[in-house]
Amino acid sequence: MVKLAAKCIVAGDPAVGKSALVQMFCNDGAHFQKNYTLTTGVELLVKTVPVPETSDSVELFIFDSAGMELFSEMLDKLWEQPNAACIVYDVTNEQSFNNCAKWLEKLRTQTSGVHIPGVLVGNKTDLIDRRVVEQKQAQEWAETSGLEYCEISVKEMENYEVPFHILANSFHQLYKEKVEIFHSLVNWKTGANQATDIKDL
């Protein structure tokens, strides 16, 4: 049994529903934030997600970032060494979708080449008449950008847990892969290697 810990950045344009999503997820759907409040800086929420078919879990440290801060340097400090990314857009707002590329780019500058799990989230699917970003278009962009994809409606409480479960599972998978690599490092039982030399001490 292991409890992993991941710093999960939630990013996206203002008013796409980042805070509503994070709040809904962390209080298990008990409360939908009806009134909009602008997030400034970063809000940190912590929730443990079990990994299916294992006794393992991932403790997500969710950094809900201010959407106004796309070009702010303050985020650079708060976003240091991220482990997972959740990029949210509003399916009724094309600009919020187009800006996802900028959010992703900003995140990638923080990871110094390390692969981290990421998910693209289209919110507000309940507003069917006002929808402008089609699922196919978003899904294709997610794929080419190495992100998972899901659509949600926080208001209707639909799929609001999915993005975080996707990230927790991917992070757990990443850990298992690394552990395999750690095992493979010391298969040098024959020959005069450092590892065996030092063992004599």
């Binding site: 049994m1 991932v58 403790e59 992070f171 552990v179 010391v186």
Partner: peptide, 26 residues
């Protein structure tokens, strides 16, 4: 960090084959 499969005691067991893993965030 503590994954019970890869506990910190592996650091001081005199073997290079066994190891301790970190489980997230530095």
């Amino acid at each position: 960090s503590s994954d019970e499969k890869y506990p910190p005691e592996n650091i001081i067991d005199g073997q290079s084959e066994t190891f301790w893993t970190t489980t997230g965030m530095f």
